[in-house]
């Protein structure tokens, strides 16, 4: 007797967001990337369409990171002080689909880079790579509200993804995205209710839902991964069930979170039973990312090139269509 898979029917699907703009579209990108559009739960190809594969981004900073593990030296050491060259390396050597530029140097406690400096770094990176670009502020709301409008203006037409908007600070970034036609990252602190409310607040300012990407906030394996996972699950089930205020693609800063934890950084000398540090860190990052792909993450922001490579391979395998018919 033939096996008939049980298929769920969903009322709706995840919206699509397109990042970047080619010359014909008013930008200078070599290609655009579209994420989202899932009509079923992650990778259930037999049940519904998954028109766009999840993408892998690598993280670039505008200043040399003082606290990154030494294992990154051989990969990025020569370009730590040159964000444009760093971005180029991520794309050309390490195969990143897109680049996330974190303007860490704008932090008053780091370099206090001016809005003009930040805009220049963004322009330099755009000139160096052809991929769509994500730009994150320094994380301090007051300063980010100064630099992000300048970045948005300098890169008008490039259809960037800018972050982050939070419930307590979303107006300035939303306005900048409206005026200069960029997309926005709506970040909520592992809280489905705030996630939904923030999307409502942003759309009430007339930024359309197809220009919002959800950052649900995730944590590394062993540090509350399952909380982020279950929020993402609820958001995705909500999206498929017709909740349009949760029907956006999702982004997660996997590399950033994983490389803060002891299990990724501690040396083998310190914990002999844990094995070699770099291999362990790579696996910690890749494992965290793999789990979050299963919860519906669309843009995975990685740090270690080898972990990124593993995840790209994992996505290739997951995107092979499964079929129970014939």
């Amino acid at each position: 007797m033939a096996f008939t898979p049980v298929k769920d029917k969903y009322r709706s699907k995840v919206g699509e967001v397109t990042l970047g703009a080619t010359r014909e579209q008013g930008g200078t990108r070599a290609y655009t990337i579209t994420v989202g559009g899932e009509a079923t739960l992650p990778f259930l190809h037999f049940e519904g369409e998954i028109p766009n594969r999840p993408v892998v981004a690598l993280e670039v900073w505008d200043v040399a990171p003082a606290d990154w593990n030494p294992c990154f030296e051989p990969f990025y050491g020569d370009v730590y002080n040159n964000p444009a060259a760093w971005a180029k390396k991520c794309v050309e050597e390490f195969g990143a689909d897109l680049v996330v530029l974190r303007l860490r140097g704008a932090d008053p406690d780091v370099k206090d880079a001016s809005p003009e400096d930040c805009a220049k770094v963004v322009k330099d990176v755009l000139a160096a790579v052809g991929c769509p670009l994500v730009v994150l502020g320094c994380g301090k709301a007051e300063k980010d509200n100064q630099i992000m409008p300048a970045v948005a203006e300098a890169a008008a037409g490039e259809n960037l993804l800018l972050g982050v908007a939070e419930q307590e600070n979303y107006k300035s970034l939303t306005a900048a995205c409206m005026v200069h036609k960029h997309n926005i990252i709506a970040q909520s602190p592992i809280d489905i209710n705030i996630c939904k409310q923030l999307n409502i607040l942003i759309t009430e300012m007339n930024l359309p839902p197809n220009r919002i990407v959800i950052d649900p906030t995730i944590a590394a394996l062993g540090y509350g991964l399952e909380y982020g996972y279950s929020i993402m699950e609820r958001a995705r089930n909500g999206a498929l069930g017709g909740d349009s205020m949760l029907a956006m693609p999702m982004i997660g800063n996997v590399g950033y979170e994983v490389w803060r934890v002891k299990e990724a950084n501690a040396s083998a000398a310190e914990y002999p039973g844990w094995g070699e540090q770099e291999a362990r860190g790579i696996l910690w990052e890749a494992t965290t990312a793999m789990a979050l792909l299963q919860a519906g993450m669309d843009i995975v922001v990685m740090r270690h090139p080898k972990a990124a490579g593993l995840i790209k391979q994992n996505i290739d395998e997951l995107m092979v269509k499964t079929s129970y018919e014939g």
């Binding site: 489905i192 209710n193 705030i194 996630c195 939904k196 409310q197 409502i200 609820r234 909500g238 017709g242 909740d243 349009s244 205020m245 949760l246």
Partner: peptide, 15 residues
């Protein structure tokens, strides 16, 4: 049946 957010009544109307 719906996920809570502060504007849930408006969301219900729109949806």
């Amino acid at each position: 049946l719906d996920i809570y957010c502060d504007s849930y009544v408006d969301v219900y109307r729109k949806q």
